[in-house]
Simulated scan of single mutants.
Amino acid sequence: MSGWWRTNRVWLAALPFCVAGAAAASSYNVKDNWYDAGLHHRIAEGSAHTWVEVHDEYTDPVGPTSRTYRVRLDAVGDTPLYPYWEDGTPAPPPDGLRAVTVRLDWRAEPDQQLRGCTLALVDEDGRRFEADTTDACTPFEQGGPEAPSPGADERPTTGPEGEPERPASWTTNPVVLVPEDTQISEVWVYWETPDHVDLRVP
């Protein structure tokens, strides 16, 4: 046996295990970076005009928690004006785009943290178009408890001081800009990736 082989035989014998370990680490990173960073976990689904019960487990600055609510897709249709311009004045959508409004009915206890959700329309090719609003899931100025701040020890159970309590049931009508030729097939609602709720458009 040559001097090189004698010197490196231990490392050569361990090489297959190193490769296997690297592959396992790569697989773990794919799970972390691809799965957790995207919307790959459907936690609930339903058809239009049907109530969907959702129990969404997640972690906030205080620790593990959950939100429970019911949502129903009532209607999806075009609207002539887009309401989310910077100056707050509704105006027609730009050329090549159309404004699509989504009517959602909601039910939840007033202590559930539902602020800050994202609503997206998904077309037949899987493209996702998000609503540019923070009120997609809660009534205006009645959003209920805010998420706890970093370092907080307790979660708020009511809305900000002076804000009326969120009712037990309400309706939202977010509007989304999409290309004119887009065929919407699903409405997604989500807070933290990778979880989302899938509401199918008829």
Rank of each mutant, 00 (worst) to 15 (best):
E163N: 13
E180A: 12
D132L: 15
P174H: 08
P139W: 02
P156L: 09
W191N: 09
G116M: 02
T158P: 03
S169G: 13
A147E: 15
E146D: 14
L121G: 11
V178S: 05
T171S: 15
P139C: 00
G143H: 08
V102D: 03
E163P: 06
V100D: 07
F140Q: 02
D132W: 13
T157G: 07
E180D: 13
G162Y: 14
E192S: 06
D123R: 06
A168I: 07
A131E: 12
V189T: 14
Q183E: 15
A136T: 09
R166W: 07
P164Y: 13
E161H: 15
T133I: 03
R103I: 05
E154L: 12
Q183G: 09
L104D: 00
E141Q: 11
E141M: 11
N173V: 15
S185Q: 15
T182Y: 08
E109N: 03
N173P: 11
A147M: 13
V176C: 05
T134D: 14
T133R: 04
R155Y: 11
L114C: 01
R128A: 13
T157P: 08
L177D: 05
E124Q: 06
S169D: 15
C117D: 01
F140S: 00
E161N: 14
E141T: 04
T193Y: 04
P160Y: 06
T193I: 03
P164N: 10
E180G: 12
T101Q: 10
P179H: 05
P156E: 06
A152C: 11
L114F: 04
A152E: 10
P164F: 10
T193W: 04
W188L: 14
F129N: 03
G116F: 00
T182I: 08
E146N: 10
D132Q: 15
T172P: 08
T171R: 15
E186F: 13
Q113H: 00
V178Q: 04
R128L: 10
Y190E: 06
D153W: 09
G159A: 06
V178T: 02
T193F: 05
E180R: 12
E146K: 06
W188Y: 15
L104S: 01
T134S: 13
T101V: 04
Q113W: 00
D111W: 05
T134V: 10
A108L: 00
W191T: 09
P164V: 12
V175W: 07
E161R: 15
T157E: 14
V178A: 05
L177M: 10
E146H: 11
P179G: 08
E163A: 14
Q142K: 11
V102Q: 05
C117V: 02
E165N: 12
G116P: 01
L177H: 08
D135V: 03
V102N: 03
E192V: 04
E192N: 11
A120F: 09
T182V: 13
G116T: 02
R166I: 11
P179L: 08
R128D: 07
P139A: 00
T193E: 09
V189K: 13
A108D: 05
W170C: 13
E141L: 11
C117W: 06
G144L: 02
T193A: 09
D111N: 03
G162P: 11
L104R: 02
W188D: 13
A108Q: 04
R103H: 07
R155M: 12
C137T: 09
P194I: 07
G126F: 03
T182L: 01
A108I: 00
A152T: 08
D111I: 00
G144S: 05
P110F: 02
T157S: 14
P160L: 10
A152H: 09
P110S: 01
P150E: 06
